[in-house]
Amino acid sequence: MNNPYFDLLMWARGPGFDIALTILIGGLLLRVVEIVVLSRKKDLAKPKGSPVLQGLKTIFTRSVPRKGLIKEAPVTYIGGYIFHIGFAIAFLFLGAHIALIDDLIGIQWPEANKALIETAAALAVVALIALAWTRITNPVRRALTTFDDWLVWLLSILPLVTGYIAVNRIFGDGTLMMAIHMLSAEALMVAFPFTKLMHAVTFAMARYYNGSIQGRKGAES
């Protein structure tokens, strides 16, 4: 006799994870290398500032919004921050996730307590719902939104919600919910290289290029 939930969990931990990680790593490298190989022409204009330094600097400074911009799109900005920070806390500071990272790459750090993680996850979910709401109500965001955006939204909210349910045993079998949580994360991993989730990696490249273009001119970025 078999426990179908356990089999699902073991599939999620075994072949499911193997497939997802393979696609994630392969896909990520493919997308990034594809961009890098495309390369750009050497800029022959005599630089006024330092393109490399400003490029590197911009990777970080662009995380801070321009003065006054928050009030132009408060939900997008604040929701965006809360989602990203909340997701990062929930992902990086839960003991079970740290154990996973430790197993993958052999580094670890202290865990946060459940109350903090759950608050972060809950806020991230609320932020995602608010962001979805502006995708529907804000004419610009509505016009820009494609199927890809909704897919990414769904893939981002699912691990948060299923993780919360699995840890707190809100409903369903604990093993099943844990398996579903893992599968939802694996869906995120699989979709990552093929969707706008790629921004989580290529944002650094984009910001670097932007910073280096502006930096060469001695202009702000």
Partner: peptide, 26 residues
């Protein structure tokens, strides 16, 4: 929460395969 399968084997292949495909795509 840790993987139970042979992901290391696959990861190495994914790195090589992904990079190769990336070079090809580029």
């Amino acid at each position: 929460s840790t993987p139970a399968g042979d992901y290391r084997k696959f990861a190495a292949a994914a790195v090589a395969g992904g990079a190769a495909l990336g070079v090809a795509g580029g």
